[in-house]
Amino acid sequence: MFRSKTKLLQLTVTLTACAFLLIPTLMSVLAGVTVNYFKGVSSGLTFKWVLNVWELYADSIFLSLWLAIACLIVTLIIGLPAAYGLARHPGWLSRLLEEFISLPLAVPGLALALALLQLYGTLSGFRTSWTFILVGHVLYTLPFMVRSILAVLAAMDLKTLEEGAASLGASPWQRFRDIVVPNAMPGILAGALTVVTLSIGEFNLTWMLHTPYLKTLPVGLADSYASMRLEIASAYTLVFFVLIVPLLMAMQWASARAQRIAQ
């Protein structure tokens, strides 16, 4: 009897917490497909607002996707060799470098953006280009990529595996391609999904760096909240969810998988 009562209490608390978090979200999503929010759902359901969002903000959506892909490519190009180097030469210097790469995590996005603006804000061609935002995103997401790959690489005897491949005639590049990259794949995948998710959802930094012609998905969201009618803003939230939730779920799955290997 006591057991079932405790369980009931646990269930109630959990469900209440879930409701507290989910109901506002659901309300917002619902508002995005309601003809008139003030009249309620009885006014009918429509995709008009979603289409409106598409017409107004398609550029932002594409820019965000483009930025996320570019950011992924850059973090891969920098992050994979960096993680490999750190894993291959453990020691105090590597630990220090790892901490250094992780520094942007501790610095608020706004401060990071301000620093970038102070340093490069006067380079007008750069300031107004999408690559300026890209630099911010790379700074912010690189530690996630490096750490994710490093965790997987550190869990295996990389040195001996490479020596094994070398004794079979593999050159350093062949070792990297045939042994290091395939075995680091779970970490690369987890890192890649994290980078894409973070890049698409990043607001702080991007809000400081953006120009009226370069708005990303979350910046557009803030813009729609500020200047559009509530139904459009809500429809925007819906679009945002549709893009980010599957990524988030994939990221959770990939990270859990990489962590299992790293243990």
């Binding site: 005897d157 595996l161 094994g164 491949a165 079979l168 593999a170 045939d178 042994i179 075995n183």
Partner: peptide, 15 residues
Amino acid sequence: ERRQVGMVFQSYALF
């Protein structure tokens, strides 16, 4: 990689 030796490691180092 150019000595053409076969090597069996203590931990085997299988890929």
